[in-house]
């Protein structure tokens, strides 16, 4: 990789990791959601680096737009239910950290041990290629996904509606 690539990648990686840490450590829930937003946008940057433009756009739209909004609303609504401010003391920090390090360690070891060739020489898939795949090879999962989304919508409404008079 060229020096510029390395710099760019390092920058993005730094932002992502910083944002991730902020998400899990921040005591204020709203701030945590915002840290997550930062992380997700930086992730879109990684997708761009990996030549997945459509995916990057989708990432920003869905996550930074949809999920973050959803999360903010949820935080506000649950705050109202609770009445008090959102408390966020965490417990079992050491155990969690150890488990996280264990997971990470194993994954890293696996990655480093794997024989990975360089990136393929073929050009990355275009949107047309993606569309053709959706309508061709992955038609069934695509349709099922739409059904699933409907189901999830109905379920979410049913679960979250107020039942008391």
């Amino acid at each position: 990789m060229s020096g510029l690539e390395v710099l760019g990648l390092s920058l993005l990686a730094g932002v992502i990791l910083l944002g991730a840490l902020g998400t899990v450590i921040s005591k204020d829930l709203v701030r945590a959601v915002l840290w997550l937003a930062l992380t997700l946008v930086a992730t879109a940057g990684i997708y761009l680096k990996l030549l997945a433009g459509f995916l990057a756009g989708t990432q920003v739209l869905l996550y930074a737009g949809g999920v973050i909004t959803l999360a903010i609303f949820a935080v506000m609504l649950s705050q109202r239910v609770e009445g008090a401010g959102v408390r966020q003391e965490s417990r079992g920090l050491v155990v969690g950290a150890l488990a996280a390090i264990a997971v990470g360690g194993v994954l890293v070891a696996g990655i480093l041990a794997a024989p990975l060739a360089a990136a393929a020489a073929v050009p990355p898939p275009s949107v047309t290629d993606l569309a053709a795949s959706f309508m061709g090879e992955f038609l069934l999962p695509f349709e099922v996904l739409s059904v699933l989304l409907v189901a999830v919508m109905v379920a979410a409404i049913t679960i979250a509606r107020r039942t008391d008079p």
Partner: peptide, 11 residues
């Protein structure tokens, strides 16, 4: 936690 530990073991 137990789940993750199992995951670590398998991995």
């Amino acid at each position: 936690l137990a789940l993750f530990l199992g995951l670590v073991a398998l991995a």
